[in-house]
Amino acid sequence: MSAEVKLDNHNAAPLAAHPTEKKRPIFEALKSMISSKTSLIGLILIVLLILVALFASFLAPHDPTQGDLFSRYKSPSGAHWLGTDELGRDILSRLIYGSRISIQVGLIAVGIALVIGTFLGAISGFFGKWLDMLVMRVIDILMAFPSILLAIAIVAVMGKGLTNTMIAVGIVGIPQFARIVRSSVLSVKESEYIEAARAGGARQFRVLFRHVLPNCMAPIIVQTTLSIGTAILDAAGLSFLGLGVQPPKPEWGAMLDAGRAALQTAPWVVIFPGLAILITVLGFNLLGDGLRDAFDPRTKK
């Protein structure tokens, strides 16, 4: 489900194309980002999410894994604000604890994609020739599969569970990073400044990691933020299919799946986890959009 991400390939190259002509400090970008209303909303949503995750044990009114079988599918009330689920557990508490899993999945999966994808893209773009050819073919192969299908296959091989879900979603995200970093590196490495460093006899890897990559940070940061949203969506999709996070962990996608059987009689079991996913992903997308606009000189008013 890496839908919106692909859109950014289009913008990534141009904004990395002028890295040296006007070095835009990250602070300035952040400032202009906060001044935009939408990205501020995104930032607030994410900060709230992190706070909820951090203070889950204070905020949650009930134990998220213990329930009473005699009070299954109770509708929202004073005792259970969002009702109870199929095992009589408090849905609000499960949503609150579930935020931890979502953040964890988002960060670690994207971390995997970021590290491997950036490395592959960087060496591919920087060294070119056969290495570029090889890496790009591997990327082509990965991209020949619809991402969710590839993730399903990987999980099917490695087994279900939180760790493997993160790995699968991470692997699926690698091509995006590799392509974006490669195209940025390609344009940056032609600049006079880098040519000078290479001519000055600096070691290749040193030039790449010290001088080239730092100049590609803008698209990487934007891609990272947007990817977290996508990763959370993908992981929730996997859990919804029963392949991701396993019970009794309160993962949002898995909660949705478990609640499906009662769609007619207890819709709240389905409604709230979906809203939680939607709002979280929305937060990351807003923030990512804001960052992109802030980094991109063209959209500056």
């Binding site: 894994t65 213990q66 079988l69 095992l87 029963g242 396993q246 019970p247 009794p248 478990a258 059987a261």
Partner: peptide, 24 residues
């Protein structure tokens, strides 16, 4: 409801200090 049955047994055995890992 095999999934729920397993989860319910998991909760019950917790009371006698048996930790149950569900493999689905």
């Amino acid at each position: 409801q095999p999934k729920l049955t397993a989860e319910a047994i998991q909760q019950m055995l917790k009371d006698v200090n048996i930790k149950v890992n569900i493999v689905e």
